[in-house]
Simulated scan of single mutants.
Amino acid sequence: MPKKAIFTKEQIFKKAFEVFKQNGLEAITARNLAKSLNCSPAPIYSFYTSLEILKKDLINQAKSIFMEYVKESSTEYIFLNIGIGICKFAREEKQLFHTIFLKDSSYSSLVREFRDLIKVEMSKDSRFDKLDEEFKTELFLDCWMYAHGFSTLIATNYFKDVSDSFIQKRLVSGAATMMYKRLEEYNK
């Protein structure tokens, strides 16, 4: 009779996600996971034939959590919602934000996915219809830098106890001012 499994796949994944959040993807090794589960590597390999599969699942979970924040409708303005979403993600998922965006550049595919989402969302806003692609790209980069910088300040506790209204106010005053200046330059 085969030995009964000590852990479920879900328990292993949950522990792996904790390790990933705390220490990054490079910490996902059979030895580290086994140590954190207080077991041998055998249970891990009984559910994951390779750690690369587990790592892909972890990244997909991180993307899913991130995208929930980014797609949340806080206001009637799609573009503003994206900025609010990344700031809320930084506030509520500080460690995951830090691991993905601040630790190293190995998560560039997630950053590209965020970038691509913004471009798709921008195309849904009729105010951007008449703008050429080069200008939209520059505008996106400016807004991305502002939102990413602000969210980094939130994640690193520069701003403490940040409310939703504070996030929205800062994004509107900072990014909107920048956007209007860019649009004025464009329309000259």
Results as ranks from 00 to 15, higher is better:
residue 131 L to E: 06
residue 25 L to Y: 07
residue 44 I to C: 01
residue 35 K to L: 04
residue 14 K to E: 12
residue 61 Q to R: 15
residue 115 R to A: 02
residue 123 S to N: 09
residue 165 S to E: 14
residue 54 L to N: 03
residue 54 L to Q: 01
residue 162 V to R: 00
residue 57 D to A: 05
residue 165 S to F: 11
residue 67 M to T: 15
residue 126 S to A: 05
residue 28 I to G: 02
residue 131 L to Y: 14
residue 64 S to Q: 08
residue 123 S to Q: 13
residue 142 D to Y: 13
residue 34 A to F: 10
residue 31 R to W: 13
residue 26 E to L: 02
residue 35 K to Y: 05
residue 122 M to V: 15
residue 84 I to P: 07
residue 75 T to L: 08
residue 83 G to N: 14
residue 11 Q to W: 01
residue 61 Q to K: 15
residue 159 F to G: 02
residue 139 L to S: 09
residue 39 C to W: 05
residue 139 L to C: 09
residue 101 F to Y: 07
residue 119 K to D: 15
residue 59 I to S: 07
residue 90 A to H: 08
residue 1 M to P: 15
residue 111 V to A: 04
residue 135 F to P: 01
residue 44 I to G: 02
residue 47 F to C: 07
residue 21 K to M: 04
residue 74 S to V: 12
residue 20 F to N: 00
residue 105 S to C: 10
residue 27 A to D: 11
residue 66 F to S: 06
residue 18 E to P: 08
residue 140 F to N: 14
residue 165 S to R: 08
residue 116 D to H: 09
residue 96 L to M: 01
residue 30 A to K: 13
residue 44 I to E: 00
residue 155 A to D: 00
residue 104 D to A: 00
residue 55 K to E: 04
residue 10 E to H: 07
residue 105 S to G: 15
residue 99 T to F: 00
residue 178 M to W: 03
residue 104 D to W: 00
residue 132 D to C: 05
residue 148 H to W: 12
residue 166 F to K: 03
residue 103 K to D: 01
residue 113 E to K: 05
residue 64 S to K: 11
residue 17 F to Q: 03
residue 113 E to W: 12
residue 161 D to A: 04
residue 92 E to L: 06
residue 24 G to R: 06
residue 87 C to T: 04
residue 54 L to V: 08
residue 111 V to Q: 14
residue 71 K to F: 14
residue 89 F to T: 03
residue 45 Y to H: 07
residue 64 S to Y: 11
residue 93 E to F: 04
residue 94 K to C: 01
residue 39 C to F: 02
residue 19 V to M: 09
residue 13 F to M: 07
residue 115 R to P: 08
residue 34 A to N: 13
residue 57 D to T: 09
residue 17 F to G: 05
residue 24 G to S: 04
residue 178 M to C: 02
residue 113 E to C: 02
residue 93 E to W: 12
residue 8 T to K: 10
residue 68 E to W: 03
residue 137 T to W: 06
residue 157 N to C: 03
residue 70 V to K: 08
residue 43 P to G: 06
residue 69 Y to Q: 05
residue 39 C to R: 10
residue 115 R to D: 14
residue 175 A to H: 00
residue 67 M to D: 10
residue 31 R to H: 14
residue 187 N to S: 11
residue 24 G to V: 01
residue 100 I to Q: 04
residue 144 W to E: 12
residue 175 A to V: 15
residue 130 K to Y: 03
